[in-house]
Design a protein around this nucleic acid. Structure first.
Lengths: 236, 236
DNA sequence: ACGCGGAATTCTGTCGACAAATAAAATACA
DNA sequence: TGTATTTTATTTGTCGACAGAATTCCGCGT
């Protein structure tokens, strides 16, 4: 389905305001899923004829993507998919660990019963993705799981910041989960279960600690993955 | 100068890509400084003839502002300056306190000597603004001071998040500092000095604690201010 | 052969205009 | 007089086109 959406969307007539959202969502997914690798040139007229639209809505979508830092646009010059800053990865990981902790802690403090149902549903989806060994689905469901925890924390600023952070790191996580394509990290599923239990028990400290170890473990594995890869090919 | 910029900018010829940035910066400042109060309608053609531009660059600026949540745009309908969410103010304050703490702690850990010079310079500007009893300057210099601390933390994600948060709260702080127009909170200047000392001494815990009390104190005062105001006029 | 300068091309930024969609106004009807 | 329906009007979303900027290519000169 995703495949047929991207290349051959032959919808002769679209609803009035849906063009930009369509282009925005499509390009966003393609960038975050590394279909458009970092550094790829983004040509407006090319996109215009691809989506059968004028350049105006294309530009609007590009402006929004630029606002999220997904594309870099040189004034009066070419615009390209933004590069992943591998040098400052640790800053991203620090931020991610902190947000994992804060959201888990707040969820333990402020969640309601209906929140737990949503979280458990997301966890079930994540578990299914892990068992199916579907890397892309693991990324999405894992993000949705932690996003649901953030929602349960009932702080729109943190959820916004956290979702933003998860999106920004989606390309990194994409590389990370790719390396797991064969073996399945069942451990993550178990750790998620523990976090749910701590949140349900309103145990702030345990939720915080679990989120911290969970996050730091992932960060360590990503680090070793990149260290391994870095010796082979520095490029990208 | 600000006044003459807003209404009568009769520059006959602008450089090619500077139009959107001009409109964006101007509108952004007007929104954050409450010149355009929340709920104000934003008319494209009105702005177009005000800035002597076509609707296209105006729209681009509006898209970027919408991306930052400063304006809300109803599809196919009017677009207006976004309202301040007074009901969920505590979520903003929680996020602000956390970022104050994190940035101060990181600054104490990672700062270099040249960072301290910048921080002290910002503090001097803040002190001057307080002594001059200039509310707008106090907002700007206070934000610049804490932003400089965040920069010294050497984590681009946190600085980005923090600056974003400071911007989002600029309208709230605008209301807050307005209430101080007469008496001057010399205490804040002293607390800033203490924070600088803790950061310079690389005392993480003290920097964290000072940032926390500093932030929470401001939050409390804003709370009481709004509680006082809330009894008088609920509107706005 | 190599560097410099100008022409051509390509892409972006801006413009004016048209069409769809919604809100407001006016009219018809009970 | 109040309500429903049509008409008008305002505003947004989209389009095609033009002009400015910058890269590229090509020819010229040393």
């Amino acid at each position: 389905m995703t495949r047929s959406d991207t290349d051959a969307n032959f919808t002769p007539e679209r609803k009035r305001g849906s063009g930009v959202k369509m282009v925005y969502d499509t390009l966003r997914d393609e960038i975050l899923d590394l279909v458009l690798p970092p550094g790829s040139p983004v040509d407006e007229v090319q996109l215009a004829e691809r989506f059968k639209l004028s350049r105006t809505p294309i530009r609007e979508a590009l402006v929004r993507l630029a606002g999220e830092g997904l594309i870099d646009t040189l004034p009066n010059r070419s615009t390209m998919v933004s590069n992943i800053d591998f040098l400052n990865l640790h800053t991203y990981f620090d931020a991610l660990v902190l947000m994992y902790r804060v959201t888990a802690r707040l969820a333990a403090e402020h969640h309601r019963t209906e929140d737990l149902e949503v979280i458990r549903a997301r966890q079930a989806e994540f578990k299914a993705a892990v068992e199916a060994q579907d890397a892309l689905a693991m990324i999405a469901t894992n993000a949705a799981f932690h996003s649901a925890i953030a929602e349960a924390g009932r702080n729109s600023y943190f959820t916004g910041l956290f979702n933003r952070l998860l999106d920004e790191g989606r390309r990194i996580l994409r590389l990370y989960y790719q390396s797991y394509e064969d073996r399945l990290p069942q451990r993550f599923v178990d750790e998620h279960e523990e976090m749910i239990a701590a949140i349900a028990a309103r145990d702030l400290e345990t939720a915080d600690r679990l989120a911290r170890t969970h996050a730091e473990q992932i960060v360590d594995q990503i680090r070793t993955l990149f260290a391994r890869k870095g010796r082979l090919n520095i490029s990208l």
